[in-house]
Simulated assay, not measured.
Amino acid sequence: MKKPVYLDYAATTPVDPIVAEEMCKYLTPDGVYGNPASRSHAYGWQAEAAVEGARRQVASLIHADPREIVWTSGATESDNLAIKGAVAGRDDPHIVTSVIEHKAVLDTCKWLEQNGVSVTWLKPGSDGRIAPAQVESALHDNTVLVSLMMVNNELGCQTDIAAIGAMLRERGVLFHVDAAQAAGKTEVDVSAMAVDLLSLSAHKVYGPKGIGALYVRRSPDVRIEAQIHGGGHERGMRSGTLPTHQIVGMGKAFELAAGQLEQEQAMLERLRSRFLQGLKNLDGVALNGSEEHRVPGIVNLSFAGVDAESLMLGLRNLAVSSGSACASATVEPSFVLRGIGLGDEQAHRALRFSFGRFSTVEEIDFAATQIVDVVTRLRSVR
């Protein structure tokens, strides 16, 4: 391989060339470059039409009303807006979340906890899933919000969001779901799942970085307080000049994802099976997270007798991760792996491999061969 094989799609995806081509139409003087909020001339009208078209495309993927899509700078901002916005102005609010959420949720809830909000931290099972019964038993009379991710970004395991959503809807508790790793990878239906707030990111779905969205249910109306003020854009929930080219890119990316969801799932399932088959003769390999309830594009493996940092150094021709990109600055073992019961030593032996739209069979075979060779060599010099 002339360049490293990219197996870190869970961290970010490349922009699909079709998306990039579409975005370029909204940047230059011969394109649509007006401010969508400028409603006094054609340039603004064209930009606004493009933004609303993208809003429909994003809404379509998650089976929502376009009016329920609020543009943000990404899933991190969406998480912050949903959680902080839901508890703002409430008397003695209580939140339920889990210890293996994305840092955007964890750090937001920790900040709220430090500022007087009560938070219950659920621990998942060894499969990385939160059970509906756990959520139900954690509810208090003053519970305002439950925030859980649909697909874990390190493990790829999938929590039963629909069952939890139905239970919370009966009890009148708001339900926020981080779907950054789910959208475009598995079916997301906000109505069927009884979700009130749902975070989305473009760069996990072959769109550009720096743009995301928050689904906010309209019927019955969910009210959240804005965290960014200055103009009252996006139904008063998120002010700021809208980046038309990025929004168009997200819309196009979500449209592409909707059109090839089943095909892409099947392709990724084949690549995953081939990858694991290529490692079958390597002893001491353990899969972390649920084997049954998962998306096919993320595989988290521990290698007995080999620490992940040494393995990554040996795999110079592979772009892989020892955990979430949001926590890559730390040398501590993954909090997600510790959260599902792995000890520090086991967690230090784990790597995440994630495949995507542009992964090839040749790359998967090359990766498996490299892993077997490097693990065997490292074990031999212990």
Score class of each variant (00 low, 15 high):
Trp45Leu: 13
Val105Asp: 01
Asp16Glu: 13
Ala82Pro: 02
Ser40Tyr: 12
Leu122Met: 03
Glu48Leu: 14
Leu61Glu: 01
Val96Ala: 09
Asn80Tyr: 07
Glu21Asp: 14
Asn80Trp: 05
Ala54Lys: 05
Gly89Pro: 10
Lys110Gly: 02
His102Leu: 14
Met23Arg: 08
Glu52Asn: 12
Asp91Tyr: 15
Gly34Ala: 12
Tyr43Trp: 10
Asp79Ile: 04
Ser73Asn: 08
Tyr33Arg: 14
Glu52Phe: 08
Gln57Arg: 13
Gly125Asn: 14
Ala88Arg: 15
Gln114Asp: 13
Trp45Phe: 11
Glu68Cys: 07
Ala75Thr: 07
Ser40Gln: 12
Glu68Met: 05
Ile18Arg: 15
Glu21Phe: 07
Val119Arg: 04
Val19Tyr: 01
Asp92Thr: 09
Val51Thr: 04
Glu21Gln: 15
Trp111Leu: 15
Pro36His: 10
Ser73Met: 07
His102Ala: 15
Arg56Tyr: 03
Lys25Thr: 10
Ser40His: 13
Ala59His: 00
Asp107Leu: 15
Asp107Ile: 02
Val32His: 07
Ala59Gln: 02
Gly53Thr: 06
Trp121Ala: 10
Gln57Trp: 09
Gln57Met: 12
Val58Asn: 00
Ser40Phe: 13
Lys84Met: 11
Pro29Ala: 15
Ala47Asn: 07
His41Ile: 03
Ser78Asn: 06
Ala64Pro: 04
Ser126Gln: 14
Val105Tyr: 03
Ser73Asp: 07
Ala42Phe: 11
Lys103Glu: 14
Arg55Gly: 06
Glu21Cys: 04
Gly89Cys: 10
Glu113Asp: 12
Ile95Gln: 01
Ser98Gln: 00
Gln114Cys: 09
Ile100Phe: 02
Ser126Val: 14
Ala75Phe: 04
Ser118Tyr: 04
Gly44Asp: 08
Ala54Ile: 06
Ala20Ser: 14
Trp121Val: 09
Thr72Pro: 07
Val58Thr: 03
Leu27Glu: 10
Ser78Lys: 08
Leu122Cys: 02
Ser60Met: 05
Glu113Pro: 01
Leu27Trp: 08
Val96His: 03
Gly74Arg: 03
Glu48Cys: 12
Ala49Ser: 10
Cys24Thr: 09
Ala20His: 06
Pro66Glu: 04
